[in-house]
């Protein structure tokens, strides 16, 4: 009885995994036909800072200059320029600070790579520490620690800490 329900449970999980992976594959499948110019304009406009407003992109701003920039992006894309060429045009005009997303070269690489490296290192560090912790014998709480905990719990009016999260049985 238990065996069959375990087996059924396992099958349900496998089916779910297959469905989810299938949907992911479906979403990543290249779609026929390129994106529309309007769509490309919109996504590119999000990458440029609106130069006469504070902290908004060209896509979000309603100033005349942002509007002119959107028109220019569209005109250039329609003329067959690539996204990189449009970016280069704006960088030539305003300098690199016009890009809201720093390019992944030179010093700009730091802002992209540093968090990723840090997360990987920290994650690895945690895994190593946990593994090492599991090899060493369990430390016992000192009397001082015990006293502190007892006092702390006593000070917590009532027992919400004790009542908290009854252990799994």
């Amino acid at each position: 009885m238990a065996d069959t329900s375990t087996a059924r449970n396992r099958i349900a999980w496998i089916v779910l995994a297959v469905l989810v992976l299938g949907a992911v594959a479906f979403s990543l499948w290249p779609r026929p036909g390129a994106d529309s110019v309007a769509g490309r304009t919109r996504s590119l406009a999000r990458e440029f800072r609106c130069v006469d407003c504070e902290g908004l992109s060209v896509a979000d701003s309603q100033t005349a200059s942002a509007r002119a920039a959107r028109v220019e992006i569209r005109r250039r894309l329609e003329a067959g320029e690539s996204e990189a060429e449009v970016r280069a045009y704006f960088v030539d005009l305003y300098g690199e600070s016009v890009l809201l997303k720093p390019e992944g070269t030179g010093i700009g690489l730091v802002v992209w790579a540093l968090p990723v490296v840090a997360v990987i290192l920290a994650g690895a560090g945690i895994v190593v520490a946990v593994r090492r912790g599991r090899r060493t014998p369990r430390l016992r709480a000192t009397d001082e620690d015990e006293a502190l905990v007892a006092r702390a719990l006593g000070a917590e009016h009532g027992t919400d800490d004790r009542a908290d999260d009854g252990d799994e049985r």
Partner: peptide, 20 residues
């Protein structure tokens, strides 16, 4: 703070915004 760092280290003006 990255725009400040880039400026201090290299003297380049950068922006870091929503897309990042």
């Amino acid at each position: 703070v990255f725009p400040l760092i880039a400026e201090a280290v290299q003297g380049t003006q950068l922006s870091v915004g929503e897309p990042y």
